[in-house]
Design a protein around this nucleic acid. Structure first.
Length: 986
RNA sequence: GGGUGCUUAGCUCAGACCGGUAGAGCGUCGCCUUUACACGGCGAAAGUCGGGGGUUCGAUUCCCUCAGCACCCACCA
């Protein structure tokens, strides 16, 4: 969908980049519109030449860590947003002369990657078990080499200036060394331990998960009221449960100690509803008498609450502990479960004197024959049928409850008694809390620190072992007595622990939670535990740019590990950005069909391809149809190519503090237009100058003005970046570029150079201002929109005869303090107000721009500087308000006949409009203005007359209100006079 | 159950820590093919700042409260 455009000179195309010189540049006109596509590829290659994005120079070290994306991942809007912000910071730091490193790499993403490869195997009719561990891991590595890391290439399309030579992968040998080193140290310090505990078990993936990897959703369920017959023959005890199948693992019933209904029951025994085994009734305050029947079954191996009860009371009440599910969630005899775990450590606990063959334990048969090997959900159905038939179900109720599901697999999570490795987090959390409290780590925006504290204060020990194959194998070996030893490898273990070669050792088959290695990312990527100079230079890193969704997963753990291992925080600032949503505020997800691919916004995509892309691989066909309809409606033309810079500017402008960010495609179009505006400003300047210009001091009002504004904007940009207010950064740049530089300054400068008097001195300083401002502007913009600024820098090489060839390595423009002139800026503001008032009046009378009008004015300004600026700038008033002539008349001059009146603060001006004038409209217009001004005047007046205001308001406010009142009085007086004049003439 | 955030123009959002005159982009309307740009220029319309109460000389802003919408943590036998 490209517009027809005039033929372009071919000489400036594909010159290979870098070969351009000032000589030939001056004669090459720019194409009429900026075309990002060709430019982006060429320039990225150019940037990679030589040292690429390696840190250089002796400047202050400045390091940002890329939150390592999953190797399985592809770039989505969230990444693109985050990457843009990081790239802005890094490019700016580089231009500031800092030694800037953007450390990049990918994460092995244990579960995600293993699932991808397992699915691939499934398509070939294979599975990992038949393949075996070694062959399976070879497959995963092959997959990683072939398809992993696509996301980093996509980042390059975004213009990311990460140091690709330092790319790391969390399973690199050096990273693995860091992982085992930390594991060994923490184990020796007692901060990593092996424990028999309940964990969240995913029966589909057959692994433990951490609390954070479990999502609970409210779903419809059933509450069954089951009868537990009493041994003495009295009425059965009724217990409500949502998971009846767990009754095979019951070790007690519990009631609240103060529940009078059950006082006589405590200490007695009841029969299980099936299975021929009795359990005691105990009392514990955790029971809520108001829920169900106030009596609860205790299944310590499969329920977190019950396990807590067991921990409190198992010695006193002689409660055994055993599990009844195998790793796939099927019912199994406890003894079998222990054997299956393959470890010499027992997976149960029996009170002294109690043996498996005791009647309390069903003489070793806890699971009736008919249920053995049955999936827990199937077993549930079968059990309910059996109990109903036996009259053991009193009633059933529909019940909403939150069902925990594995984040990855979606399978219902079972709390499961297993032996796992845990990190004892409290001793690690305390220094982390202090680091944030003391300000050694700053959260931006601050309120996220609260979130961090809340979690850290209630932190639970972290289960770090996973029953997967893809990941860091746990560096721990077990002997036949169940004793554990750590080391980097078996030989290392024997050396460290002085074990004879004949001493049997078996390495733990499990791997570590992916987040364990991620937690070491800040120092492991920089070379730890080696004595790497990068570590000394760049640790602690400057700022972590991340979403709030991984504060717990990742940020908190990096802080804990960094402080513990390095003795220093991993980063000084945590900048927490919002999460990208669609235009309706919905989370972008494949199943909703509202996903936007950042690359499609850059390159564009046709409607048909987009529809295909969004519906591919969807299981439900009605869902696919819905998405197709919605997509066709929303993007009837597909998505046009906006270019990388437009997308980056959009992200920057949207990066206001907050927790979600609605991504609106229309904004991208707006910023594409912005890029084009900047491009065309370059075209104009090329036409006006086109060769190096010696720096010349400014004397002309507008030249001084734009230099003053530039100095202000440099300062504002610096401040916005210092506060991580990317939205404000974008706002300042947009406003300055478009409104001040293009709309005002270029219009004037064009005139000064093309049609003006031929005053060589003014021309020289105007060229110098034009070139100096545009040059600085490109450098200010470069971190945000790197491609177009680099392209302009290259094409307009005469802009920077002494500067570097590439804007990438140019210096940030520093604000020139002497250029700032507040009084001049005020004066120009008045001038602009006068010009805008004339334009308004012209527009009200619908006078074409081409029509030049006669005008006369009287000065009403009481500020000498302002008046001087107006008088000096009559030429620009004429130019910008399209006047033929504009003459000053003596104060008190009468309104010329047949004129429209324009009343502003610095001057009252009459536009000669013979033939157009409408006395009624004129009067109404002035009256309206008068009323507005009087309303304001009255407001200020009454405020100033209010004694309590005068007594209590700060002096500076009173002063400024007085100034304002004076101005309003002047304005009102002048409007009244002009209205009288109008009446008098009538 | 505990907590956090949001509610401002037709749409998407700034502004609020630090009270006094409410801003932007997009959209809408009018005029304009002015040789940088129609991916443009100039101009205009458009808001009882979610409801109620309080503090204050003054509240969109601070406090309380209600409503709606998001989200997080815990938990539901």
């Amino acid at each position: 969908m490209s517009r027809p455009r005039p033929p372009e000179p071919t000489a400036d195309h594909d010159t290979g980049g870098g070969e351009r010189t000032i000589r030939d540049a001056s004669i090459l006109p720019l194409p009429k519109a900026y075309e990002p596509h060709e430019v982006e590829k060429r320039l990225y290659a150019l940037w990679l030449e030589g040292d690429g994005f390696k840190p250089s120079g002796q400047g202050t070290p400045y390091c940002i860590l890329l939150p390592p994306p999953n190797v399985t991942g592809t770039l989505h809007m969230g990444h693109a947003f985050q990457d843009t912000l990081m790239d802005i910071l890094i490019r700016r730091a580089r231009m500031n002369g800092d030694c800037a490193l953007w450390q990049t790499g990918t994460d092995h993403a244990g579960i995600a990657t293993q699932m991808v490869v397992e699915r691939e195997l499934e398509r070939e009719g294979l599975n990992r078990i038949t393949l075996g561990r070694t062959a399976f891991l070879e497959r995963v590595w092959a997959w990683k080499e072939a398809s992993g890391g696509m996301i980093l290439n996509q980042m390059k399309r975004l213009g990311c200036s990460a140091d690709w030579s330092r790319e790391r992968f969390t399973l690199d040998p050096a990273m693995s060394r860091a992982v085992s080193e930390v594991f060994i140290r923490l184990h020796e310090e007692g901060l990593i331990y092996r424990g028999l505990r309940l964990v969240n078990w995913d029966p589909q993936l057959e692994t433990a998960l951490s609390d954070l990897e479990v999502r609970a959703e409210e779903e419809a369920g059933t509450l069954w009221y089951l009868r537990y017959p009493r041994t003495g023959g009295q009425a059965a005890v009724v217990v409500a449960t949502t998971r009846p199948e767990t009754l095979f693992g019951d070790v007690a019933l519990a009631v609240h100690p103060d529940d009078s209904r059950y006082h006589d029951l405590v200490g007695q025994r009841v029969w299980l509803p099936t299975g021929g085994r009795t359990i005691p009734v105990i009392a514990d305050a955790f029971v809520d008498p108001a829920f169900g029947t106030g009596c609860v079954k205790i299944t310590p191996a499969h329920d977190f609450n019950d396990f807590a009860v067991w921990e409190r009371l198992h010695e006193k009440e002689a409660l055994p502990l055993f599990r009844i599910l195998d790793s796939r969630g099927c019912l199994t005899e406890p003894a079998r479960a222990a054997r299956e775990s393959g470890s010499p450590e027992p997976l149960h606990w029996l009170p002294p004197g109690l043996e498996w063959d005791a009647p309390e334990l069903g003489r070793g048969h806890l699971i009736p024959e008919a249920y053995r090997g049955l999936d827990r959900l199937k077993a549930r159905e079968q059990l309910i049928r059996e109990l109903e038939a036996a009259g053991r179900v009193e009633k059933t109720e529909a019940h909403r409850l939150s069902i925990p599901r594995g984040e990855r697999s979606g399978a219902i999570i079972e709390p499961m008694l297993t032996r796992q490795w845990f990190v004892q987090t409290r001793p690690l959390a305390e220094p982390a809390i202090r680091a944030v409290e003391s300000g050694r780590i700053r959260f931006v925006p601050e309120n996220w620190a609260q979130n961090f504290f809340d979690w850290m204060h209630n932190i639970q020990d972290w289960c770090i072992s996973r029953q997967l194959w893809w990941g860091h194998r746990i560096p721990a070996w077990c002997d036949d007595q169940g004793r554990w030893y750590t080391g980097h490898d078996e030989a290392d273990v024997r050396r460290r622990h002085a074990l004879d070669p004949s001493h049997p050792l078996h390495q733990d088959p499990d791997v570590l939670d992916t987040w364990f290695s991620s937690a070491l990312w800040p120092f492991a990527t920089l070379g730890w535990p080696q004595d790497d100079p990068a570590l000394k230079t760049f640790y602690p890193t400057e700022v972590l740019v991340t979403g709030f969704d991984i504060i717990f997963f990742w940020v908190a753990r990096m802080v804990m590990m960094g402080l513990h291992v390095m003795g220093e925080v991993p980063f000084r600032t945590v900048y927490v950005h919002a999460l990208v949503r669609d235009a309706e505020g919905q989370k972008m997800s494949k199943s909703k069909g509202n996903v936007l691919d950042p690359l499609d916004l850059i390159d564009g995509i046709g409607l048909e391809t987009l529809v295909q892309k969004r519906t591919r691989g969807l299981l439900l066909s009605n869902q696919a149809r819905k998405i197709e309809t919605q997509t066709r409606k929303e993007y009837p033309q597909g998505i046009p190519a906006f270019g990388t810079d437009a997308l980056r500017f959009t992200f920057t402008a949207l990066a206001a503090p907050g927790r979600d960010l609605r991504f609106d495609l229309k904004r991208v179009a707006g910023y594409r237009n912005f890029c084009n505006k900047l491009w065309n400003a370059g075209r104009l300047i090329q036409q006006l100058c086109g060769q190096p210009v010696p720096p010349t001091p400014a004397t002309h009002v507008w030249n001084r003005w734009i230099r003053s504004r530039l100095a202000s904007v440099c300062g504002a940009v610096e401040e916005a970046l210092g506060n991580y207010r990317f939205d404000e950064l974008a706002g300042h740049l947009y406003e300055f570029t478009w409104n001040e530089f293009c709309d005002w300054y270029l219009e004037v400068a064009k005139n000064l150079l093309v049609s003006a008097s031929g005053d060589e001195a003014i021309c020289a300083e105007t060229r110098s201002t034009l070139v100096g401002t545009y040059n600085a502007l490109l450098r200010l913009l470069h971190p945000v929109i790197p491609f177009i600024t680099e392209e302009l820098w290259g094409r307009l090489a005469w802009l920077h005869p002494e500067g570097p060839d590439r804007i990438l390595t140019a210096a940030t423009p520093s604000p020139i303090v002497e250029d700032r002139d507040a009084s001049l800026e005020r004066g120009v503001l008045r001038l602009q107000e006068l010009i805008m008032a004339i334009r308004r009046t012209r527009s009200a009378y619908r006078i074409a721009d081409a029509k030049r009008l006669q005008a006369a004015f009287v000065m009403t300004a009481n500020d000498a500087d302002e008046a001087a600026i107006i008088r000096r700038e009559i030429a620009s008033i004429r130019l910008l308000a399209r006047l033929e002539a504009c003459e000053e008349m003596p104060a008190g001059s009468p309104k010329p006949p047949g004129s429209a009146t324009v009343v502003t603060l610095p001057a009252t001006l009459w536009l000669t409009l013979s033939g157009h004038i409408d006395r009624g409209a004129e009067s109404a217009r002035l009256r309206q203005e008068f009323e507005n001004a009087s309303r304001q005047k009255t407001q200020v007046q009454s405020r100033l007359e209010n004694p309590s205001f005068r007594n209590r308001a700060p002096g500076s406010l009173i002063e400024s209100e007085q100034v304002r009142l004076a101005a309003l009085e002047l304005h009102c007086g002048e409007l009244a006079r002009q209205l009288e004049e109008l009446d008098r003439l009538e």
